[in-house]
């Protein structure tokens, strides 16, 4: 799936969910993880992930740690206290949205 507009609203909850599960991750690892777990269906442009990460960081949802790895700096992201609280809300919001869309696309036939 390549539609950026469809992915746009779901990227933040996906990032929060992955970080809640993994503890801490760096940018490239998150991209690979999204790709693998979606069975290759979600193709985010890698450049789009970082602005989303930086926005979550600015909102205070993520904490950052810089580490030296093989002669370069690696930026690890993890959920902050505010992020842990927001994850539940954002995921339930996303699930409600997905259910609503699904009920429009595949309406249950009512037996009269």
């Amino acid at each position: 799936m390549n539609s950026n507009s469809l992915l746009k609203g779901t990227l933040s909850p996906i990032i929060l969910k992955l970080l809640a599960e993994q503890g801490q991750m760096y940018g490239y690892q998150l991209i690979q993880s999204i790709r693998e777990r979606s069975g290759g269906h979600l193709h985010i442009k890698e450049g789009a992930l970082y602005p989303a990460l930086h926005k979550l960081e600015q909102q205070g949802f993520l904490e950052v740690e810089h580490r030296q790895v093989s002669g370069r700096v690696r930026k690890y992201y993890r959920l902050g206290a505010k992020g842990r609280r927001a994850t539940e809300d954002k995921l339930s919001e996303l699930k409600t949205f997905v259910t609503a869309v699904q009920s429009i696309l595949e309406p249950k036939t009512k037996l009269s």
């Binding site: 940018g27 370069r72 700096v73």
Partner: peptide, 11 residues
């Protein structure tokens, strides 16, 4: 640059 250097190096 720092974060992108790591991204490109890893890729």
């Amino acid at each position: 640059q720092a974060e992108l250097i790591d991204h490109f190096a890893t890729a």
